[in-house]
Structures are given as C-alpha cells and as structure tokens.
Computed example of a mutant assay.
Amino acid sequence: MTETAALRTAPLRARAEIDLAALRANVRTLRGRAPGAALMAVVKSDAYGHGAPQCARAAVQAGATWLGTATPEEALALRAAGLTDVRVMCWLWTPGGPWQEAVEADLDVSVSGMWALREVTAAARRAGLPARVHLKADTGLGRGGCQPGGDWAELVREALRAEAGGLIRITGLWSHFACADEPGHPSVAAQLALFREMTAHAEGRGVRPEVRHIANSPATLTLPESHFDLVRTGIAVYGISPSPELGVPADFGLRPVMTLSASLSLVKQVPGGHGVSYGHHYVTPGETTLGLVPLGYADGIPRHASGAGPVLVGGKWRTVAGRIAMDQFVVDLGGDEPGAGEQAVLFGPGDHGEPTAEDWAQAAGTIAYEIVTRIGTRVPRVHVNESV
C-alpha cells in the first residue's frame, strides 16, 4: 500500500484531499479553450500546494506537453521524480544558479539579461551540451524580462551568436501579462502589441523559436489572440477562477481540486459571556457549544480570517470564533453537539455546501491563489483518483 493510499483511511488531524480526476478534467477544459496551442501546466510551489509530482503526472496524462516551475530546483525535482518525457521550463534564476545541472537535465531555462546568457553559455560549454533557452521580454509587467529597445536587441544578437556557436538553442520567446485578469485593461492590448513587436524583431534577425508564449490562466480563458504557440496555465489547472469578477470556476468549466478538512478535537458546552481564544475578541452571546478545529496559521490558515473564516460542520456553515492561533481555532456551534472527530470542512468544490477557497480569500482579504498555496507541510496531501 502506498503512503497516499494508507492516508486515505488513517484517522488524521487534518488532510488536504487532492482530486486528480478533477485536475485532469481541468487540463482538458483548458486545452479546449486554446486548441491551436500547446499547454503548459504550471506546477511551481509544489503545484500551488497540491503536490507537484502527482499533479504533474496527472496533467501530462490529460495532454499537457509542458510543465512550468519558478525555480530550477523545482524543475530538477520533477526530473528526479521520473518526469523525463515532457518539456520542463523554469524561469526564476539568480547568479550562480544550477545552470549546468539544468542543461544536463534537458530543462528549458529563461534568460532575461546578459548576465544570465553568459552563465548559461558557460554551463553549456562545461556540459558539452546546448542549453535550451527562452528569451524573456518585459512588455510591461516590470518584473523579469529584458527591456525593449537596445537591451533586447543586444540580448537577441548575443543569443544568436551563442546559438551559432552550438552553445544554446533559442527554443522560446516569452513574456507575462500584468492585468490579464482585468479584461479591457489598457495594459493588456499594449503588452500584446509590444510582444508582437519584440518577437518580430527577434525573428527578423533569425530567431526560430519552437514556442512563443505570453498567455497565463486568465488570458487562456478570455483572450484567444494571446495564445500563440503555448499557453501557461497555473491556478486554473487547480480549478480556481483566476478572475472571480468574471465568474466562478464552474463558469469556466473548472472544478476545484483541493478539499481541506480537519477532525474536531474537542466539543464542549460553555456559558454566555465566555471569552474565546487570544484577546477575547469573541465572547459567547449565550450558552452554546464550541468546537475546536486543530488547524492554525502554522498550517497556513490565514490569521487575517479571524472572526470571519467559514467552516462546514454538521451540514451548517460556522464562522471562526475569535482569533486563529498557531495550531487551532474555535467555531461556535450554536448549541449543536457533534462528537469529537466530526469532520470540519474549511473549503472544497462546494458540492456539499462547503465553503470554497474563494470564500476564505474574501474572509482574509486576499486571493484564492494564496489560500491553497500556503497550506503547510503538517497537512498531509491525500491524492485520490490517481488512475486515469
């Protein structure tokens, strides 16, 4: 029996159940939104908290032909986990990074400036293998990427020189949107126009990339003209809407993949006027029952959701009573008396009336990306529906 299989039936303090059938369905839906482009499933940050190797395999089973990570260490871990027959790209580099290991592992790496081009070409020379390089253009996000104009012209020129010398292959030209989750924002059209201009410059000098890509999850769902040769889908793979203002996951044909739950560790009766948790920011209005949920901010439950986070217990929505502590928080059960061990569902797809990650995001004043990604390592990931 695998560890994941054993965890399905073992009594647990808490668990994050990951539905890989839902993930595969999401990938197929996203492929249908961009039928003329290849699909990259972004599995950075341990697949947004869902478990990178398992989610990567499921995405590939559903037709993803690329995987994306932020750091090279994340990408190398995918190769070590046996994901060797799929293209893997990583983009967050710092000087002195594991360039040679990346070249030897046949990773695609991002280059935004001359320092990175020098380091990757030196690594390729040591490895005796050409590096697969994507040149990144800063079209307006203002983070990574090479500035348009002279900087871009120099990077393209020197990359072509390295390619002619057999040290690199320019396999991609790419950029990233700033406001694709706000359709109609003027920066979207401006970035798209500049991306076309910068790729045209590179191709006019002789660059022949395998893929050009700028579309993230929201652009994949709402901006067909941005799809080019490859779309990079992150949060949408996990069934979370990248733009709640435009619709819930079901509106895009997506289904949330993670369900976070815990077993009540204590249920007790208390009188009215009883202070609850640190600071007594909640005082019971009358005689009631309290339930103790053994999850806290050390597990990634946002303290900012104190007094507001929703939880389903016994078929009813409850609200966090008082402050969320490091390892636990309290819900007021309103006189109901479920037994210790009763399931408390913090979020899931919403099928059974449970809150969603977006509900927690609203309660904490953040985005659903952060809610799922921050769930800590003390919470076991239990992967279900692993077989296709």
Rank of each mutant, 00 (worst) to 15 (best):
M1S: 14
T2C: 12
E3I: 15
T4D: 12
L7Q: 08
L7P: 10
T9N: 11
P11G: 07
L12Y: 02
R13F: 07
A14N: 08
A14I: 07
D19H: 10
D19W: 09
A22N: 01
R24W: 04
R28C: 07
R31M: 09
A34S: 08
A38Y: 02
L39H: 02
A41P: 00
V42Y: 02
V43C: 02
G51P: 02
A56V: 01
A56N: 01
Q61V: 08
A62N: 01
G63S: 05
G63T: 04
G63L: 04
W66S: 07
E73W: 12
E74L: 00
A75P: 04
A77G: 05
A77M: 06
D85N: 09
C90E: 05
W91M: 15
L92N: 13
Q100D: 13
E101N: 11
E101Q: 15
V103H: 04
D106Y: 05
V109P: 03
V109K: 03
S110K: 11
S110Q: 15
S112W: 14
S112D: 15
G113Q: 13
W115A: 14
A116E: 15
R118I: 09
E119N: 03
T121K: 06
A122G: 09
A123L: 00
L129T: 12
A131H: 09
T139C: 12
G144L: 15
G145T: 11
C146F: 08
G150A: 14
A153M: 09
V156W: 06
L160M: 07
E163I: 06
L167A: 08
S175C: 13
H176K: 10
E182D: 15
H185M: 05
H185I: 05
P186T: 04
A190H: 14
R196T: 13
M198L: 15
H201G: 13
A202L: 10
G204E: 11
G206N: 09
R208F: 12
V211H: 12
V211I: 11
A215W: 10
S217A: 10
L221R: 05
P224Y: 10
F228S: 02
D229L: 02
D229F: 09
V231N: 01
G234H: 00
I235Q: 00
I235H: 01
P242E: 03
L246N: 03
V248Y: 11
A250H: 10
L254D: 07
P256I: 06
M258I: 12
T259N: 03
S263C: 10
L264S: 01
V270D: 08
G273K: 03
G273R: 07
Y278G: 11
G279T: 04
T284A: 04
T284R: 04
V293H: 07
L295P: 02
Y297P: 00
Y297W: 12
A298M: 11
G300K: 00
L312D: 04
G314V: 06
G314I: 07
T319R: 13
V320F: 05
V320W: 04
A325S: 13
A325K: 03
M326Q: 15
Q328Y: 15
F329Q: 01
V330Y: 09
D332N: 06
G334D: 10
G335I: 03
D336G: 07
E337L: 12
A340S: 14
E342K: 13
A344F: 02
A344W: 01
G348Q: 00
P349E: 08
E354Q: 05
A357C: 06
E358C: 05
A364S: 03
A368F: 01
T373S: 14
R374D: 08
N385D: 13
S387K: 14
